[in-house]
Simulated assay, not measured.
Amino acid sequence: MAQPAPRDGRVRLTPESIIDAVIRLSREEPGERLTFRRLGQELGVDASAMYRHFRNRDAIVRAALDRLFQGAVADAQAAAGREDWRSRLEAYFEALMAAFIRHPALGRESFALDTYGPGELQSIEFVLECLTEAGLPHARVVHYYAALESHALALGAGIAREIQQLPGSAGHDPWLSPGVFTQLAGHPLLEAHHPDLARLDSLGTFRAGLAAILDSASREGSTIRS
């Protein structure tokens, strides 16, 4: 929660209050890029005051992103903590995508920035634990971790950027432009599949990729156990 201002009217600036403000602004002003100046306005302080707690903007964004990773793990554990490895992974990645959709100014940074924080470490451990439970060999655990994380973060960043450009789209913007379907001649498979392709949106694409990776991990794990 945000830190209340002291009774003498001065703002008590802490790393936590700054992160609270970043997360709040990324939700309430989804189309805006986070800046020290805007943070200063939100907190009622000079923008330069942020440098006493964070060396630059990236450090603040990393800390806020770390909070989102931590929250996604907590949400997954609450929703599917007693379920099997696949259900827990599905719950985690759905929670992470939902966090990026709610906070697009942060989600758009997720592919390019490591947080170096406890939330990201906890999320990596969570994914590795689930993949280990799937029965995969040691080296293949990392293989599937890489596939899942790169897919989720790349699509998450892309959907967040999409939401900033199209507020309210919430991941449901068509994956393919309608103009594609006006030029079907000579492309028989595109013509055959175009009704399903026309219904495909960004979230549907994310979920299709997630299911394909988890299907593969499940088959491989079952083969090793048998």
Rank of each mutant, 00 (worst) to 15 (best):
R57Y: 04
L113V: 10
F206E: 00
R7P: 11
R38N: 05
P104R: 08
L136R: 07
D66E: 12
W85P: 14
R161D: 07
W175I: 11
P188V: 05
A192P: 03
G117M: 06
R27F: 13
Y144M: 05
D8I: 15
A74Y: 01
W175F: 15
E109N: 12
G171S: 01
G156F: 12
E125H: 12
D215Q: 09
P15G: 04
R57A: 06
V61I: 13
R62V: 14
D84V: 10
R38T: 11
E94W: 09
A64P: 00
A99H: 08
I60D: 08
H138C: 02
A72L: 07
A217C: 07
G179D: 11
S87K: 14
A198C: 07
E220R: 00
R219Y: 07
R37A: 15
L13G: 10
S123K: 02
E129A: 15
R33C: 06
A160K: 00
P104G: 02
E120F: 10
Y92R: 13
A147R: 15
A160R: 00
R57I: 11
F111E: 13
E42L: 01
H172E: 13
A146E: 14
I224G: 00
I163G: 00
L155M: 15
H194F: 05
S123T: 10
T35L: 10
E90Q: 13
L166W: 13
M1R: 06
R219A: 12
F206Y: 15
D196Y: 09
A21D: 07
S17R: 12
Y51T: 14
H194C: 05
G186N: 02
Q41D: 15
S123A: 15
S218W: 10
D58Y: 11
D46G: 09
P167T: 06
A78P: 00
A105K: 04
H53W: 10
S226F: 08
E29Y: 03
M1S: 14
E125I: 05
Y51M: 13
H194D: 00
R52E: 09
E94V: 14
V142H: 14
R67V: 10
L39H: 04
R86P: 11
L121G: 06
Y92W: 00
R55E: 11
L13A: 06
S110F: 03
L65R: 02
A59H: 10
Q122F: 09
Q70Y: 10
D66P: 06
Q164L: 04
A74G: 11
V22S: 11
G119H: 00
P15Q: 00
A2E: 14
F126T: 06
W175E: 01
F181D: 02
Q41C: 05
